[in-house]
């Protein structure tokens, strides 16, 4: 397919090999609301990329499009070199949704055994992921007996099964205490160092500093796609929260001026 020069230059300059996610002109409509329109994005392999933005900015919709469970109205989205939603990708992506998608009426271990069987992941993955989310002492408890934070970690453990190349995590640290949050962010970094790509949404701004790259989404548009130091330099700030407020305010002023 031929492309106009304008279109080519508009794309972020990352070669195809190193891109885990590439979206071009993506358009998603939910109900009668256009959530994403003419949306471009590139996420590099082997990085932890933070996806930040106010409620309703399109974070979850974007993640659903990456995983391939979202109906897309236009544009292209490629994940690990394949069109999003390809059958082959179903083994290679781990997906964590905001509300825990696990069975509450069976035990933690039974949940993991089931999803491991579905993925064809080795049996040893069950114990490994239980340890990774620190649920060893609850492995044989029914999920319905666990607290909200523990339930959400069961769901995270499922996403870690089969050592996926891409992890799409929608607010994985909500409702967790500071120690657990720190441990999970350490785990995310270790996974990325081992070669996995992580796309992690959050609205806790101090978590953003743990990401190698930050995306700020507002009303379906990217306000920032920077490393943390780049972001600080560009906004002349020293904290992510401050930087984002700065960018959002500037955007609001621009809209008002128009």
């Amino acid at each position: 397919m031929m492309k106009s020069t304008e279109e080519v230059t508009r794309l972020p300059r990352v070669d195809v090999e190193s891109a885990a996610i590439r979206a071009e002109g993506l358009r998603v409509v939910r109900g009668n609301r256009v959530v994403l329109d003419d949306f471009d994005l590139t996420v590099r392999r082997g990085t932890v990329t933070g996806l930040l933005g106010p409620n309703g900015s399109g974070k979850t919709t974007l993640m659903r499009a990456v995983v391939g469970v979202q109906k897309v109205a236009g544009g292209r989205i490629e994940v690990l070199g394949r069109p999003a939603g390809s059958a082959e990708l179903r083994y290679r992506i781990g997906y964590f949704t905001q509300s825990p998608s696990v069975y509450r009426d069976i035990t933690v271990r039974q949940n993991l055994q089931y999803f491991a069987a579905v993925l064809g992941a080795p049996r040893s993955d069950v114990d490994r992921t239980i340890e990774q989310v620190d649920l060893g002492s609850h492995a044989d408890d029914l999920v319905s007996r666990l607290s909200g934070g523990e339930t959400s970690r069961v769901s995270l453990a499922v996403a870690l099964l089969g050592e996926p190349e891409l992890l799409v995590l929608d607010e994985p640290t909500v409702g967790l205490d500071p120690v657990l949050r720190r441990d999970l962010w350490t785990l995310f970094r270790e996974l990325a160092d081992a070669g996995a790509t992580l796309l992690v949404s959050s609205h806790v701004m101090d978590e953003a500093e743990r990401c190698q790259r930050l995306l700020l989404l507002r009303e379906g548009r990217l306000l920032a796609d920077d490393t943390v130091p780049e972001l600080y330099a560009r906004t002349d700030t020293s904290g992510t929260e401050e930087a984002f407020l700065h960018l959002i305010d500037r955007e609001t002023h621009r809209e008002v001026a128009q």
Binding site: T97, S101, Y103, R104, F115, V118, L119
Partner: peptide, 13 residues
């Protein structure tokens, strides 16, 4: 409604 069906269908099920 719990999202487990969506998760299963995002997997190889």
């Amino acid at each position: 409604t719990s999202g487990t069906l969506e998760r299963l269908l995002a997997m190889p099920t």
